[in-house]
Computed example of a mutant assay.
Amino acid sequence: MPDRPSPLVAATGVVLDTRGRVLVLTGPGRTEPELPGGPVRDTETPEEGLARALREGLKLTPATGRLLAVDSRPPGPLGRSQIVHVHLVGPLAAPEAAAVSLPGGDTAEARWLPPEEACALLPARTAPRLRAALAALHTGSFAHLVDGVPQPGSPAGLDPARRLALEHSGTLDPASHRASRPKAVTAASVLFTGPDGRILLVQPAYGRSDRWNLPGGGIDSDLGEIPRAAARREVEEELGLDIAPGRLLAVNWSHKPGRPARIRFLYDGGVLDAPALARIRLDPTELLQWRTVAPADLPGLVKPALRRQITACLTARATGTGPLELHAGRRP
């Protein structure tokens, strides 16, 4: 209704390049550094408004990515509250990032900065929004903010010390408690060898294709899938082989600061003879090729943490021990 002021709606882009740098707009014509974006007009959705702002202001036409955060700001000088939707844009390939330009061609006003430098440069009301959005990006989650402050129960952006204090005080309701708890990503892999002891590796068609993996993939835990069933499904989808996994050889836990923990269940797939290897049929949407390699050839093909996991599993298989508890491939 015209006599009831509605909130102002804006859309902001966290525009990244492939090096993880953040695009910040600075220089003449701006009172302070800012992230790309602007008000949503007329009947636009926030996604449409952000796409228009990027197109008009920076000559950028990438698709607006997933929603990272929503920040609600109390009424300001105009007497109206503001709701800001923060979306991921990119990562932009190097040529596209280099081509970013502002009206008039003053490219010095468009700066690519490491995340911490970007947060230090942005004004106090904007920097916390970027930090929370990046936390949501890295954890695969979402941040709920009020005036830049993550709210109790926000799945991302909430300081761990504050989360613990809220949990211990008993002030979080069950839904907020579940939402704010740390999350983990789970996967299941299978160790196959040939009669000569060579290890079956697969080359992914996504991500870093120069890194080889064991057959396997993510566990669909939201569908009630258990690790063993996921291992069998992934092998059938990737290799076209329906083979029930053998015993559990190891469980590996790995973690990087600011990211979800990653848990991998590693199963013994047994020995594949020549006829079984000949039956392999790759899913081209997931894998480029497969090969068998000697354990001594693992360096340079798989990343060190996975190499340690494979070596530990080969030992557990040979000695009949396990399941092993591994942390980044090492025994604790």
Score class of each variant (00 low, 15 high):
L223M: 07
R232T: 09
V271L: 05
G194P: 02
A274G: 05
F265P: 01
I243C: 13
I226E: 15
D297N: 00
P295T: 03
D210K: 13
P227T: 09
P299W: 02
N252M: 12
G270R: 01
R211W: 12
R247F: 11
V202P: 03
I219S: 02
D283Y: 02
R232M: 13
V202F: 02
G197N: 02
P284L: 04
R281I: 03
L239E: 11
S221V: 12
L249Y: 10
E237P: 00
G224P: 01
L223E: 10
A184E: 13
K183F: 09
L272H: 06
D273H: 09
L298V: 06
G270D: 04
E225T: 01
A230I: 08
L298G: 09
T285I: 00
S221I: 07
I243D: 05
D210V: 11
Q203P: 10
P215E: 04
G240F: 08
A244T: 15
G217I: 05
P182T: 00
I226L: 14
L298D: 09
R264K: 02
A205P: 05
V271E: 12
L200C: 03
D210I: 06
D222K: 10
T292C: 15
A296K: 03
I243P: 06
A231W: 05
N213S: 11
F265Y: 15
R279N: 08
P195I: 04
L200P: 11
K303G: 07
V235N: 06
G269M: 10
G217F: 06
L272W: 02
D283G: 00
V302K: 01
G218V: 11
E237V: 12
G258F: 01
G270P: 04
L248Q: 14
A188T: 07
G300Q: 00
L248H: 14
L298T: 05
V185L: 15
V302I: 13
G197C: 02
L223P: 01
P284D: 04
W212C: 12
L272A: 06
A184Q: 13
L214V: 07
V185H: 05
L288V: 12
R247V: 10
Q289W: 00
R291M: 12
L288G: 06
I226N: 11
I280C: 04
Q203G: 05
E236M: 08
L282F: 09
G194N: 08
S254I: 06
I263N: 07
T186R: 15
L239K: 13
H255I: 12
P182R: 01
P204Q: 11
D297A: 15
Y206C: 02
P295G: 04
V202Q: 13
L200Q: 03
A274Q: 05
Y267Q: 05
V190Y: 04
R291L: 05
I280S: 04
A244Y: 02
